[in-house]
Design a protein around this nucleic acid. Structure first.
Lengths: 328, 328
DNA sequence: TTGAAAGCGTTACCAG
DNA sequence: CTGGTAACGCTTTCAA
């Protein structure tokens, strides 16, 4: 019973007599033997580990995506190394290195927005140089050929804005996010909807937030002081929209009767708050699956062409926050 | 410039002349060299990897706990291998093996309730036999000396029930969870509060759910048909409580005026729904930290005594769902 | 201060 | 069908 034989039994590879196989199995059970992946990976150069970097698990946006990734990967025998990056350049870089050190077979990087990083390429480069594939969830300009999966932000924002316009609002405040491609694109949707519907755009109606709930609250306070007061608000993401709704609640402004509110992302919270929040639906789970799929196809070399860029389409989930009761 | 020298430079161990050190650094940069953790672990027998098994990331209860774990561990240079177990015996066992295979330095197992597993010991045993430490978040009877951190369920349920009783309710329906220690303990709290407050217990008021939102909804439907109808409901967790509130909303029963509702866990959703949900606060983040702390202390052998069992105390967050407006 | 070599647990290859 | 052995990339010990 040599090590070679044991290896054969475990990997079910090569010829092993039934008798020997049984004997080995027995020994394994008695000794609680578990193969050492580290040693395995030393010879096979595959760890079946995938690095996953997420800015913040507490943001429900990422949860479904993680699930999509996990479901796809688990089925194929991969396991996730999870790390939180906190949207910090340095931190991200460190984690990428850490992943490399652990010899992940590939990595998935999620970010609210990659463009805010001075030099995303510098972060990814070490991975690429080590022949570790990277896929991105987000928006980047990169000189490398990497796959990314994103979402049609322009269209999403367009749909939400158009919906508000169609509901009769002509003065729609916009709670924007931090300067980033996402914000730009969502702004463009907002803008184009106005143009297409022949409603003039008023820059004074744009209030800047930072994608976090509190900033939505603050922004709403400013909007409430506008004169004339807008009759609708579109927030660039749901948590800001929810912050805004809380401000409205605190000031006893009724939604949607006095002010209609729409958000973006369709996080689970939308259906919990009252009135339910109208929001742009991102197929988060599918995005996760696609990310995993892209990555695996790179890893097993079933694809090796130029960087792919899958953009998922949009849909608006219309709920109570934008539909007055008499219109229902 | 031998491998030995490079090793010294990287680990900042042993004597290396400044000149050589610089030369090595330079080469590292040029080559994008990253140490191979797998190989390192082969000689050091430490991977700095911690396995984390969670039933379901989508349940907000676990999120904060994961964060607590992550924060504590990251600081000490550990990284998480994350896996979802789905509360399934077989699945759990597999993941434990997978972790072992990856030679995690330790593992943290979370479960809504371990007692539902026929043989939790069988699941943990392989880890223990391989000298990999395990800590548990949950409730287990185990013949092994493992650390666990839990929560004072009896007290928590007691506080919630007592609060409802003090608010004048004498007929409090209970939406229970699946048969498990957690359910038992929360039931005990419910029961003891009744006894201490000299209110007789009515078994007919207990409706069984399964800890999931939908079951809370269904349970509430049954409660609404009771005659006389209870004036308050205590659900054994928040998602069931929220399901119950949705049923009440659908049937136009006002909360808390017609029926008061209290939950357990204090997930973030409690503050999002209206009326805000009164709930028993679990220090989820601290639980996570404690788990990590227990594990590390075992790993570095600063502790090696009998299994510790840390039970976190309870607090009730009283919100609108149990306090009538005139009482505020 | 540096290098050579053994050893960690596996797999792959070659001989028997 | 089975066993021996080189090789994987690293750390550690010992010698130079």
């Amino acid at each position: 019973m040599s090590v070679a034989t044991v290896s054969r039994v475990i990997n079910e590879r090569g010829y092993v007599s039934e008798k020997t196989g049984l004997k080995v199995q027995e020994a394994i059970n008695i000794l609680h033997y578990t193969p050492n992946q580290a040693a395995q990976s030393l010879t096979t150069s595959s760890t079946k580990l995938i690095g996953l970097l997420v800015p913040d698990i507490n943001n429900p946006v990422f949860l479904r995506t993680i699930e999509g990734i996990n479901d796809y990967l688990k089925e194929k025998g991969y396991i996730l190394m999870y790390a939180e990056s906190g949207e910090d350049d340095e931190e991200m870089s460190n984690m990428v290195r850490r992943f490399l050190s652990n010899r992940v077979d590939g990595m998935i990087l999620c970010s609210r927005d990659f463009t805010q990083f001075g030099d995303m390429d510098a972060i990814i480069e070490p991975a690429l140089k080590n022949n570790v594939h990277v896929v991105l969830n987000g928006y980047v300009d990169s000189k490398f050929e990497i796959d990314r999966v994103g979402f049609d932000n322009v269209r999403g924002a367009y749909l939400a804005t158009e919906h508000l316009l169609k509901m009769g609002h002509s003065s729609i405040a916009l709670i924007a996010g931090t300067d980033s491609t996402i914000s730009e694109e969502r702004y463009r949707g907002y803008r184009e909807a106005h143009i297409d519907n022949h409603v003039s755009l008023n820059p004074a109606l744009v209030v800047k937030g930072d994608f976090r709930q509190h900033s939505g609250y603050e922004a709403m306070l400013k909007i409430l002081q506008m004169n004339p007061r807008p009759t609708a608000v579109f927030a660039m993401n749901d948590v800001m929209a929810i912050g805004a709704m809380m401000a409205l609640e605190d000031h006893k402004v009724s939604v949607p009767d006095e002010i209609a509110v729409a958000g973006f992302d369709d996080i689970i919270w939308c259906s919990l708050i009252r009135p339910r929040l109208t929001s742009v639906v991102q197929p988060k789970y599918e995005i996760g699956k696609k990310l995993a799929e892209f990555l695996l196809s790179r890893m097993n070399e079933s694809y090796s062409g130029p960087g792919r860029h899958e953009i998922f389409g949009s849909r608006l989930a219309v709920r109570q926050s934008t539909v007055k009761s008499e219109q229902q």
